[in-house]
Design a protein around this nucleic acid. Sequence first.
DNA 1: AAGATAAACAACATAGTGTATATTATTGCC
DNA 2: GGCAATAATATACACTATGTTGTTTATCTT
Lengths: 191, 191
Amino acid sequence: MEGKKLDRRVRYTKMVIRDAFIGLLAERAVAKITVKEICLRADVNRATFYAHYRDPFDLLHQIEDGFVEDISRYLADTDFTGVEEEASLAAATRICEYVKQNAPLCIVLFGQNGDARFLDKAKEIIRLHSLKDWFAGTRATKREAEYILHFVIGGAVEVIQRWVAGGLRESPAEVAGLVLKVAVSGSAAYR
Amino acid sequence: MEGKKLDRRVRYTKMVIRDAFIGLLAERAVAKITVKEICLRADVNRATFYAHYRDPFDLLHQIEDGFVEDISRYLADTDFTGVEEEASLAAATRICEYVKQNAPLCIVLFGQNGDARFLDKAKEIIRLHSLKDWFAGTRATKREAEYILHFVIGGAVEVIQRWVAGGLRESPAEVAGLVLKVAVSGSAAYR
DNA sequence: AAGATAAACAACATAGTGTATATTATTGCC
DNA sequence: GGCAATAATATACACTATGTTGTTTATCTT
């Protein structure tokens, strides 16, 4: 995406702004964070912030989009051929692994101060990567099938959120396994 | 909750402020809405706004909490004795009915400009009303059971969100039925 | 080393905030 | 109906963050 390598100064500036912002985001919501604060913490001139971002929301969205792009690429890089269910499990595990690897960022993005749009973006990515599998061989109507897909992804993301909030105590494989099991067989799978 | 009857003037003022705010919320997120705008639209003095609310977030949270309280009371008023699954279906249907009855408000609260915390509150309410049922007779560990519950509620709310966003085309009973079916038997129920 | 580019600095007009005061209008109640 | 209470208004205020601009300084690329 980023066509050319950036000037070291730019990279540095963006990094400190980003870090300062994420630090603040751990404390409160974006809406309560001012440009002034970010710059004070990052030790960067306010005009410099405006040279790179429109406002704190723009910054947040860039961070979010970067995350979504990364995870999307991460999934695209993997070949999920094989039995449908095995492939799905592999994909789910891989997502969980990515989350675990990027824990510090995920904690704020999925946490109390993250915004709803990010979650929607994340869901959409997962949706796109699992669509083909879920639509194959269903006897549900098209509309039902869509609702089911939304249900499953909504549930999956909810679980990942809880997993992150709880400190990532289970392994990625465990979480993925549970999610997939419930997604396929429902809560009855545990009765 | 509201102990005493309010002065007519107060009721009127709160109503116009609320309406003006919801109108604005249909256009953009809370963070982008100013007190000034709300007052201009509501034709109310700015000082009057501050007499009732700290800021637009406070207003939003009051609206959200009112919604959650209402739905909570709505559920509490209903007796859900009977077969576990029947009772769950009745509760789910009732929630969907409530949403449909309050469609204009739900569209903004569940919509693009709603905040993540509201969804969390809503999920928590549903959780509290379904906890007893889901924890009964499971062979899952406690931790697994909690994840499953979160999964199901996350999925259910996701479906309701889509249902609202899509214009409430299905009946409450249909939506509730689909949600419950997937929750219990998973996507495999439709294979 | 030289030219290019980005950051720092400082200054500015603007807009919204939150609060306080005096004034006017409406309400609830005897 | 009249009156005390209370809410809303009009207005003014200091304050803070915003977004922008022009200039200077530091750093990068070649």
